[in-house]
Structure formats: C-alpha cells, structure tokens
Design a binder for these strands. Sequence first.
DNA 1: GTACTCATGATACTCGGTCTCAGTTGCAAC
DNA 2: GTTGCAACTGAGACCGAGTATCATGAGTAC
Lengths: 153, 153
Amino acid sequence: MSTWAPGSLFLEERVGQAGHRLTGPRLALFRAIARYPEGFTAEELRDQHPSIGRATVYRTIRLLVDLGLVCKIALPEGAPRYVVAGGGHHHHAVCIECGAVKEFRYSTVESVLGELRADVMGQIVGHRIEVYVRCGSCVDQGGRTGLAPVSTP
Amino acid sequence: MSTWAPGSLFLEERVGQAGHRLTGPRLALFRAIARYPEGFTAEELRDQHPSIGRATVYRTIRLLVDLGLVCKIALPEGAPRYVVAGGGHHHHAVCIECGAVKEFRYSTVESVLGELRADVMGQIVGHRIEVYVRCGSCVDQGGRTGLAPVSTP
DNA sequence: GTACTCATGATACTCGGTCTCAGTTGCAAC
DNA sequence: GTTGCAACTGAGACCGAGTATCATGAGTAC
C-alpha cells in the first residue's frame, strides 16, 4: 500500500485547470486538506479555518469530489471522511482506531469481481470494497477504539 | 398483498427468544418489514404505520440490527437501507435504480481478501463489499434512475 | 391486585448537509 | 486603472435522519 501524499499544489492545479477560481478560502482549504493525507472530515476542515463559512467548506469539498480529486468514504457510522484521491480505480483501508484512510490497489480482487456476474443477478455497474484495519501505529500503541467496532455480517 | 410473509414470524421468534417483548407496534413493524424482502428505509416503515412514533420505529430497527436480524446498508448517498439478514457472512448487491438489495455469498472473494494482508498494512478486522447493479427487472423496463448513479473511483 | 420493568409516543434536540440571498471578489476586456 | 459581470462567499434558515428525554401505558412476575 502506498502512502501517496498529494500537496495542496496538486489540488490548486487541477481546480484551476477545470476552470474554477482559486480564491483565498479555497486555497486555505486546499492547504488544510494537504495536512490530512490520511483523510479528513468536514468538521476538521472547519476547525482549521473557523472563519470560513460552513457552506463554503461543504461546497469546496463537493467541488473536489465532483472533480474526482477527493473520495468520499461513507463509514458504517459517524460522519463520512474524505481523502485525496490518488487517481485511478482503488479501494480504501480504514483504521477503526484512528480513522486513518489508506488507498490500496489490488488487481486480483478486480478480476475476481468480474466473475461475480454469475452470482449476482442483473447488470453490475460498480462496486465498493472497504477493508477495516487496525493500522500499524494503533496496533503498536495497543490503543483504545476511536471509531466504533465494525461488524461484518 | 399478503399481510403475513415468512420474515415476520422469523423476526418475532428471534426477538422473543432474545427476551424482548412482542408488543403491538413491534409486531406491526415486523409485518411491515416482511413486506420489503429487498430492503426498506425507516421512512418506508413510517409510511406503513404513521400511527407508530418515529422514535419507536428507529428503536425497533436498532433492536433488530443489534440482534443481527437486520443489516444496515450505508449507500454512498441518501438514507441508509435495511434488509433482513439471512444469517452468516454475506455481501449485498444494491440496485441503483429501484434500491432493491439482494444478498450474495461468494467464497472466492473471501479467500482472495485473505491475501490482501500483504497489501494492507496493519491488522485486518473486517471488510465490506457492496456491488452496485441494475437488477433484472430494471434492465427490462429500461427504468428511470431512483438512486443516484454510482461512481467507483 | 400490585409493583415493577420495559416499551411507547410526543417532542425537543443534535448533526451533517443543502439552499437562498445579498454582498464581495477575481479577472478579462477595454 | 476602471468597469462589468459571473463566480464565489458568509450568514443563517432550513431539511432530513437519527437520538435523548420524559411522562405515560402495557406486560409480567409475584
């Protein structure tokens, strides 16, 4: 798994290329996002820049999601997290202790999912794989649970 | 439409066995749930029984989730759906048109996920696989989109 | 029948997110 | 440098899903 950490410059570039303005609040939010390579919540961004309006924070996040620069990760419970997308098709490993999100690519999973057609009635249009982990540093610390334990029915 | 479906008796039995009371509102909700073998939202249950309090509907759903009788399916957007669990480990195929949820079991995926340990740093504690489909009847109808299209980054 | 526990409905509240709108800003054209 | 205009902003109202609280009611054990 790679820990690809995009800078705020990457977001600036892409948003600019897409024909959107690079305003003060947006640049501030891009820099804040760059400080959370392992994922952030809207709340965390607001804490970083309390002077920026709530609506602007959510609008900016949505803009980035629309441009495919940020992925929204709907956790089983609690607020969704967002993480800067490394580009291309990938999946997420979410730490249930600290909430850190790491991307991984695993082509074997993709190819196996291709075989699912026989099992799943209808036309497959997409899929989502999320792996819940206790990340290395949380295992080391033997830390307490920050996020709720995950049930996998 | 029948007022009794196999699912409701199953829920009654299990909730009773777990030492919870089988009150009028609960039985009414169990019967309503049985009418949605392909998943339901809290809103749909409330529509079926407007006289039952909002809090009671949510409490009953949570009770069923806690007992493992119902699975909560967090869709990428919109209200979560719930579906009566068939028991055992399984995954969900969600129709993006009509919202129908079908379970599937696919042991090959499980075994492949086992190999992920090399790719994903840390201790894997769970996973979630959801496949988004257009189900047979929606493909036949060429129906309109009920849920938002799914992006798979 | 009584006492106790659990469940209920009403309602207020929280939380994440969106919508609206008047004011501001960025930027291209001149 | 200034102008005009569309894009953007912040404030705050609003929305929907879900939770908390609390007085009341229904079931159950004795």
